[in-house]
Design a protein around this nucleic acid. Structure first.
Lengths: 158, 158
DNA sequence: ATATAAAAAGACCTTTAATTCTTTTTATAA
DNA sequence: TTATAAAAAGAATTAAAGGTCTTTTTATAT
Protein backbone atom coordinates (compact mmCIF):
# COMPACT_ATOMS: atom_id res chain seq x y z
CA UNK A 1 0.00 0.00 0.00
CA UNK A 2 2.03 2.96 1.28
CA UNK A 3 5.81 2.86 0.97
CA UNK A 4 7.79 2.63 4.22
CA UNK A 5 8.86 6.28 4.06
CA UNK A 6 5.21 7.34 4.13
CA UNK A 7 4.26 4.88 6.86
CA UNK A 8 7.02 6.19 9.09
CA UNK A 9 6.18 9.75 8.07
CA UNK A 10 2.61 9.45 9.31
CA UNK A 11 3.60 7.76 12.55
CA UNK A 12 6.29 10.40 13.05
CA UNK A 13 3.86 13.26 12.52
CA UNK A 14 1.45 11.77 15.04
CA UNK A 15 4.18 11.47 17.64
CA UNK A 16 5.34 15.06 17.02
CA UNK A 17 1.74 16.22 17.49
CA UNK A 18 1.47 14.29 20.76
CA UNK A 19 4.69 15.77 22.13
CA UNK A 20 3.75 19.26 21.01
CA UNK A 21 0.46 18.99 22.89
CA UNK A 22 2.53 18.33 26.02
CA UNK A 23 4.50 21.49 25.32
CA UNK A 24 7.55 19.61 24.07
CA UNK A 25 9.52 19.73 20.83
CA UNK A 26 10.89 16.24 20.09
CA UNK A 27 14.14 15.56 18.27
CA UNK A 28 14.55 12.77 15.73
CA UNK A 29 15.88 10.35 18.38
CA UNK A 30 12.76 10.82 20.47
CA UNK A 31 10.51 10.35 17.47
CA UNK A 32 12.41 7.25 16.32
CA UNK A 33 12.01 5.70 19.76
CA UNK A 34 8.30 6.55 19.88
CA UNK A 35 7.47 4.97 16.55
CA UNK A 36 10.01 2.13 16.66
CA UNK A 37 11.88 3.16 13.51
CA UNK A 38 15.62 3.43 12.72
CA UNK A 39 17.02 6.73 14.04
CA UNK A 40 18.91 7.99 10.94
CA UNK A 41 16.04 7.07 8.65
CA UNK A 42 13.59 8.86 10.91
CA UNK A 43 15.83 11.94 10.79
CA UNK A 44 15.83 11.79 6.99
CA UNK A 45 12.06 11.62 6.83
CA UNK A 46 11.52 14.41 9.38
CA UNK A 47 13.90 16.63 7.42
CA UNK A 48 12.11 15.83 4.20
CA UNK A 49 8.77 16.78 5.75
CA UNK A 50 10.26 19.99 7.10
CA UNK A 51 11.50 20.88 3.63
CA UNK A 52 8.02 20.20 2.24
CA UNK A 53 6.45 22.39 4.89
CA UNK A 54 4.40 19.77 6.74
CA UNK A 55 6.18 20.64 9.99
CA UNK A 56 8.71 23.19 11.20
CA UNK A 57 12.01 22.69 12.96
CA UNK A 58 14.42 24.65 15.13
CA UNK A 59 18.14 23.91 15.08
CA UNK A 60 20.60 24.02 17.92
CA UNK A 61 20.35 23.24 21.59
CA UNK A 62 16.76 22.86 22.65
CA UNK A 63 15.62 22.53 19.06
CA UNK A 64 13.35 19.92 17.54
CA UNK A 65 10.31 19.43 15.35
CA UNK A 66 6.90 21.01 15.79
CA UNK A 67 3.62 21.94 14.14
CA UNK A 68 3.21 25.57 13.21
CA UNK A 69 -0.51 25.30 12.44
CA UNK A 70 -2.62 22.86 14.49
CA UNK A 71 -2.28 19.18 13.46
CA UNK A 72 -6.07 19.04 13.29
CA UNK A 73 -5.82 20.90 9.99
CA UNK A 74 -3.35 18.45 8.40
CA UNK A 75 -5.10 15.53 6.71
CA UNK A 76 -3.70 12.12 5.83
CA UNK A 77 -4.51 12.98 2.25
CA UNK A 78 -2.15 15.95 2.34
CA UNK A 79 0.63 13.87 3.89
CA UNK A 80 0.32 11.00 1.42
CA UNK A 81 0.08 13.39 -1.52
CA UNK A 82 3.18 15.19 -0.33
CA UNK A 83 5.22 12.00 0.18
CA UNK A 84 4.04 9.79 -2.70
CA UNK A 85 2.43 12.19 -5.12
CA UNK A 86 -1.13 12.42 -6.38
CA UNK A 87 -0.70 9.30 -8.54
CA UNK A 88 -1.12 7.23 -5.40
CA UNK A 89 -4.81 8.08 -5.46
CA UNK A 90 -5.32 7.81 -9.19
CA UNK A 91 -3.32 4.84 -10.40
CA UNK A 92 -4.81 1.68 -11.90
CA UNK A 93 -5.06 -1.55 -9.90
CA UNK A 94 -3.33 -3.48 -12.69
CA UNK A 95 -0.64 -0.87 -13.38
CA UNK A 96 -2.17 0.07 -16.69
CA UNK A 97 -1.32 3.68 -17.64
CA UNK A 98 -4.22 4.25 -19.99
CA UNK A 99 -6.86 3.02 -17.57
CA UNK A 100 -9.90 5.31 -17.57
CA UNK A 101 -13.69 5.18 -17.74
CA UNK A 102 -13.42 5.30 -21.54
CA UNK A 103 -10.62 2.74 -21.82
CA UNK A 104 -10.91 0.66 -18.65
CA UNK A 105 -8.82 -2.23 -17.41
CA UNK A 106 -10.87 -5.35 -16.63
CA UNK A 107 -11.40 -4.42 -12.99
CA UNK A 108 -11.62 -0.65 -13.34
CA UNK A 109 -15.20 0.00 -12.18
CA UNK A 110 -15.07 -2.37 -9.22
CA UNK A 111 -11.74 -1.00 -8.03
CA UNK A 112 -12.87 2.63 -8.30
CA UNK A 113 -15.21 2.08 -5.37
CA UNK A 114 -12.35 1.20 -3.05
CA UNK A 115 -9.98 3.83 -4.33
CA UNK A 116 -12.63 6.48 -3.77
CA UNK A 117 -13.45 5.15 -0.34
CA UNK A 118 -9.84 5.25 0.71
CA UNK A 119 -9.47 8.74 -0.72
CA UNK A 120 -12.46 9.94 1.31
CA UNK A 121 -11.05 8.34 4.46
CA UNK A 122 -7.69 10.07 4.08
CA UNK A 123 -9.37 13.42 3.43
CA UNK A 124 -11.51 13.10 6.54
CA UNK A 125 -8.75 11.95 8.87
CA UNK A 126 -6.37 14.46 10.44
CA UNK A 127 -3.04 13.92 12.18
CA UNK A 128 -4.55 15.69 15.19
CA UNK A 129 -7.44 13.24 15.42
CA UNK A 130 -5.08 10.24 15.20
CA UNK A 131 -2.85 11.78 17.88
CA UNK A 132 -5.95 12.19 20.05
CA UNK A 133 -6.63 8.46 19.89
CA UNK A 134 -3.10 7.66 21.03
CA UNK A 135 -3.30 10.17 23.90
CA UNK A 136 -6.57 8.60 25.06
CA UNK A 137 -4.89 5.18 25.00
CA UNK A 138 -7.22 3.93 22.27
CA UNK A 139 -4.42 3.37 19.77
CA UNK A 140 -0.65 2.85 19.56
CA UNK A 141 2.32 3.88 17.45
CA UNK A 142 4.71 0.98 18.13
CA UNK A 143 5.10 -2.17 20.21
CA UNK A 144 5.67 0.05 23.21
CA UNK A 145 2.59 1.06 25.17
CA UNK A 146 4.23 4.08 26.72
CA UNK A 147 4.64 7.50 25.16
CA UNK A 148 7.50 8.35 27.54
CA UNK A 149 11.10 8.52 26.45
CA UNK A 150 13.54 7.89 29.30
CA UNK A 151 16.28 10.44 29.86
CA UNK A 152 14.75 13.31 27.93
CA UNK A 153 15.83 16.70 29.24
CA UNK A 154 13.37 19.50 29.76
CA UNK A 155 14.39 22.86 28.23
CA UNK A 156 12.63 26.14 27.55
CA UNK A 157 10.22 24.83 24.95
CA UNK A 158 7.81 27.13 23.14
CA UNK B 1 -0.65 -1.44 -4.25
CA UNK B 2 0.42 -4.55 -6.13
CA UNK B 3 4.06 -4.93 -7.20
CA UNK B 4 4.74 -4.86 -10.96
CA UNK B 5 5.35 -8.60 -11.10
CA UNK B 6 1.83 -9.22 -9.84
CA UNK B 7 0.26 -6.61 -12.11
CA UNK B 8 1.89 -8.19 -15.15
CA UNK B 9 1.06 -11.65 -13.83
CA UNK B 10 -2.66 -10.90 -13.73
CA UNK B 11 -2.69 -9.26 -17.15
CA UNK B 12 -0.66 -12.19 -18.52
CA UNK B 13 -3.08 -14.75 -17.10
CA UNK B 14 -6.03 -12.93 -18.63
CA UNK B 15 -4.37 -12.90 -22.05
CA UNK B 16 -3.50 -16.60 -21.80
CA UNK B 17 -7.15 -17.31 -20.95
CA UNK B 18 -8.31 -15.30 -23.96
CA UNK B 19 -5.98 -17.10 -26.35
CA UNK B 20 -6.87 -20.49 -24.90
CA UNK B 21 -10.54 -19.80 -25.51
CA UNK B 22 -9.66 -19.31 -29.18
CA UNK B 23 -7.94 -22.68 -29.13
CA UNK B 24 -4.46 -21.20 -29.08
CA UNK B 25 -1.51 -21.64 -26.76
CA UNK B 26 0.42 -18.35 -26.63
CA UNK B 27 4.17 -18.10 -26.06
CA UNK B 28 5.77 -15.43 -23.91
CA UNK B 29 6.35 -13.12 -26.89
CA UNK B 30 2.67 -13.17 -27.75
CA UNK B 31 1.69 -12.52 -24.15
CA UNK B 32 4.22 -9.69 -23.79
CA UNK B 33 2.83 -8.02 -26.91
CA UNK B 34 -0.75 -8.44 -25.71
CA UNK B 35 -0.16 -6.85 -22.32
CA UNK B 36 2.49 -4.33 -23.35
CA UNK B 37 5.23 -5.66 -21.04
CA UNK B 38 8.93 -6.38 -21.64
CA UNK B 39 9.36 -9.79 -23.31
CA UNK B 40 12.06 -11.35 -21.08
CA UNK B 41 10.30 -10.17 -17.92
CA UNK B 42 7.01 -11.58 -19.14
CA UNK B 43 8.76 -14.90 -19.75
CA UNK B 44 10.13 -14.87 -16.21
CA UNK B 45 6.72 -14.24 -14.72
CA UNK B 46 4.97 -16.86 -16.85
CA UNK B 47 7.62 -19.41 -15.85
CA UNK B 48 7.18 -18.48 -12.20
CA UNK B 49 3.44 -18.99 -12.45
CA UNK B 50 3.96 -22.31 -14.19
CA UNK B 51 6.23 -23.43 -11.35
CA UNK B 52 3.57 -22.38 -8.85
CA UNK B 53 0.92 -24.31 -10.72
CA UNK B 54 -1.32 -21.41 -11.77
CA UNK B 55 -0.91 -22.40 -15.42
CA UNK B 56 0.71 -25.19 -17.39
CA UNK B 57 3.21 -25.04 -20.22
CA UNK B 58 4.44 -27.22 -23.06
CA UNK B 59 7.99 -26.93 -24.34
CA UNK B 60 9.27 -27.25 -27.85
CA UNK B 61 7.83 -26.33 -31.21
CA UNK B 62 4.15 -25.50 -30.97
CA UNK B 63 4.41 -25.15 -27.21
CA UNK B 64 3.16 -22.35 -25.03
CA UNK B 65 1.17 -21.55 -21.91
CA UNK B 66 -2.33 -22.71 -21.09
CA UNK B 67 -4.89 -23.30 -18.38
CA UNK B 68 -5.36 -26.87 -17.29
CA UNK B 69 -8.50 -26.18 -15.26
CA UNK B 70 -10.91 -23.48 -16.48
CA UNK B 71 -9.80 -19.88 -15.71
CA UNK B 72 -13.25 -19.32 -14.22
CA UNK B 73 -12.07 -21.27 -11.19
CA UNK B 74 -8.93 -19.16 -10.61
CA UNK B 75 -9.62 -16.08 -8.47
CA UNK B 76 -7.60 -12.88 -8.22
CA UNK B 77 -7.22 -13.73 -4.55
CA UNK B 78 -5.40 -16.96 -5.41
CA UNK B 79 -3.11 -15.18 -7.87
CA UNK B 80 -2.20 -12.34 -5.50
CA UNK B 81 -1.67 -14.74 -2.61
CA UNK B 82 0.57 -16.87 -4.79
CA UNK B 83 2.65 -13.93 -6.05
CA UNK B 84 2.82 -11.67 -2.98
CA UNK B 85 1.90 -13.88 -0.08
CA UNK B 86 -1.01 -13.74 2.33
CA UNK B 87 0.46 -10.72 4.17
CA UNK B 88 -0.75 -8.54 1.31
CA UNK B 89 -4.28 -8.98 2.66
CA UNK B 90 -3.47 -8.73 6.34
CA UNK B 91 -0.86 -6.01 6.76
CA UNK B 92 -1.42 -2.75 8.62
CA UNK B 93 -2.00 0.53 6.79
CA UNK B 94 0.80 2.18 8.77
CA UNK B 95 3.22 -0.74 8.52
CA UNK B 96 2.84 -1.57 12.18
CA UNK B 97 3.56 -5.27 12.83
CA UNK B 98 1.62 -5.57 16.05
CA UNK B 99 -1.54 -3.98 14.69
CA UNK B 100 -4.64 -5.90 15.81
CA UNK B 101 -8.08 -5.34 17.28
CA UNK B 102 -6.52 -5.55 20.75
CA UNK B 103 -3.52 -3.34 19.98
CA UNK B 104 -4.67 -1.17 17.06
CA UNK B 105 -2.84 1.49 15.12
CA UNK B 106 -4.66 4.84 15.03
CA UNK B 107 -6.52 4.03 11.83
CA UNK B 108 -7.02 0.30 12.32
CA UNK B 109 -10.82 0.07 12.48
CA UNK B 110 -11.48 2.47 9.63
CA UNK B 111 -8.92 0.78 7.38
CA UNK B 112 -10.28 -2.72 8.07
CA UNK B 113 -13.41 -1.87 6.10
CA UNK B 114 -11.42 -1.26 2.94
CA UNK B 115 -9.06 -4.14 3.38
CA UNK B 116 -11.99 -6.50 3.81
CA UNK B 117 -13.80 -5.00 0.83
CA UNK B 118 -10.78 -5.49 -1.38
CA UNK B 119 -10.33 -9.02 -0.10
CA UNK B 120 -13.95 -9.84 -0.97
CA UNK B 121 -13.55 -8.33 -4.43
CA UNK B 122 -10.48 -10.43 -5.20
CA UNK B 123 -12.20 -13.58 -3.95
CA UNK B 124 -15.25 -12.96 -6.13
CA UNK B 125 -13.35 -12.07 -9.29
CA UNK B 126 -11.98 -14.79 -11.54
CA UNK B 127 -9.45 -14.61 -14.36
CA UNK B 128 -12.11 -16.13 -16.60
CA UNK B 129 -14.58 -13.34 -15.83
CA UNK B 130 -11.96 -10.66 -16.53
CA UNK B 131 -11.01 -12.39 -19.79
CA UNK B 132 -14.69 -12.38 -20.73
CA UNK B 133 -14.83 -8.60 -20.42
CA UNK B 134 -11.87 -8.19 -22.75
CA UNK B 135 -13.35 -10.59 -25.29
CA UNK B 136 -16.61 -8.64 -25.26
CA UNK B 137 -14.61 -5.43 -25.85
CA UNK B 138 -15.69 -3.98 -22.51
CA UNK B 139 -12.14 -3.80 -21.16
CA UNK B 140 -8.51 -3.71 -22.33
CA UNK B 141 -5.12 -5.13 -21.38
CA UNK B 142 -2.82 -2.51 -22.90
CA UNK B 143 -2.79 0.63 -25.03
CA UNK B 144 -3.57 -1.60 -28.00
CA UNK B 145 -7.25 -2.19 -28.73
CA UNK B 146 -6.65 -5.34 -30.72
CA UNK B 147 -6.14 -8.82 -29.35
CA UNK B 148 -4.44 -9.95 -32.56
CA UNK B 149 -0.73 -10.64 -32.81
CA UNK B 150 0.61 -10.25 -36.36
CA UNK B 151 2.61 -13.11 -37.81
CA UNK B 152 1.54 -15.82 -35.39
CA UNK B 153 1.64 -19.27 -36.93
CA UNK B 154 -1.16 -21.76 -36.47
CA UNK B 155 -0.07 -25.20 -35.32
CA UNK B 156 -1.85 -28.27 -33.98
CA UNK B 157 -3.00 -26.76 -30.69
CA UNK B 158 -4.90 -28.80 -28.14
C1' DA C 1 33.14 33.68 23.93
C1' DT C 2 32.79 28.85 24.07
C1' DA C 3 31.13 24.27 24.59
C1' DT C 4 27.27 21.74 23.51
C1' DA C 5 23.15 19.93 21.64
C1' DA C 6 20.44 19.92 18.03
C1' DA C 7 18.89 19.86 12.85
C1' DA C 8 20.57 19.96 7.84
C1' DA C 9 23.02 18.24 4.11
C1' DG C 10 24.77 14.96 1.53
C1' DA C 11 27.70 11.02 0.56
C1' DC C 12 27.51 6.27 1.00
C1' DC C 13 26.04 1.42 1.67
C1' DT C 14 22.56 -2.54 1.42
C1' DT C 15 18.68 -4.86 -0.14
C1' DT C 16 15.03 -5.82 -3.10
C1' DA C 17 12.53 -5.28 -7.33
C1' DA C 18 12.81 -4.97 -12.16
C1' DT C 19 14.85 -6.30 -16.25
C1' DT C 20 18.02 -8.50 -19.61
C1' DC C 21 20.92 -12.01 -21.52
C1' DT C 22 22.76 -16.57 -22.34
C1' DT C 23 22.61 -21.34 -22.22
C1' DT C 24 20.08 -25.64 -21.84
C1' DT C 25 16.35 -28.72 -22.54
C1' DT C 26 12.55 -30.54 -25.14
C1' DA C 27 8.93 -31.47 -28.43
C1' DT C 28 7.69 -31.83 -33.18
C1' DA C 29 7.36 -30.73 -38.14
C1' DA C 30 9.94 -31.63 -42.05
C1' DT D 1 16.86 -38.03 -37.69
C1' DT D 2 17.63 -33.42 -37.90
C1' DA D 3 16.60 -28.60 -37.84
C1' DT D 4 13.81 -25.63 -35.51
C1' DA D 5 10.88 -23.35 -32.37
C1' DA D 6 9.59 -23.19 -28.08
C1' DA D 7 9.93 -23.04 -22.67
C1' DA D 8 13.20 -23.53 -18.58
C1' DA D 9 16.94 -22.22 -15.94
C1' DG D 10 19.86 -19.26 -14.14
C1' DA D 11 23.46 -15.67 -14.27
C1' DA D 12 24.07 -10.84 -14.69
C1' DT D 13 22.70 -6.07 -14.82
C1' DT D 14 20.14 -1.85 -13.59
C1' DA D 15 17.17 0.95 -10.89
C1' DA D 16 14.81 2.11 -6.85
C1' DA D 17 13.86 1.84 -2.05
C1' DG D 18 15.55 1.49 2.43
C1' DG D 19 18.88 2.66 5.63
C1' DT D 20 23.54 4.51 7.71
C1' DC D 21 27.30 7.65 8.52
C1' DT D 22 29.95 11.88 8.53
C1' DT D 23 30.37 16.62 8.22
C1' DT D 24 28.41 21.22 8.53
C1' DT D 25 25.52 24.71 10.36
C1' DT D 26 23.10 26.91 14.03
C1' DA D 27 21.08 28.21 18.38
C1' DT D 28 21.66 28.69 23.23
C1' DA D 29 22.98 27.73 28.03
C1' DT D 30 26.98 28.48 30.63
Amino acid sequence: MLVKRTEYAIRALISVAIRNRKGERPGFKDVAALIGAPKPFTAKILQEMTKRGLIKSIRGRGGGFFFDSPPESLTLYQVIKSMEGLSFFTKCAFGFNECSDEHPCPIHAEYLTFRQGFLDLTKQTTIGALAGKVIKGEAFLSWSTSMEVPGSIKLNFF
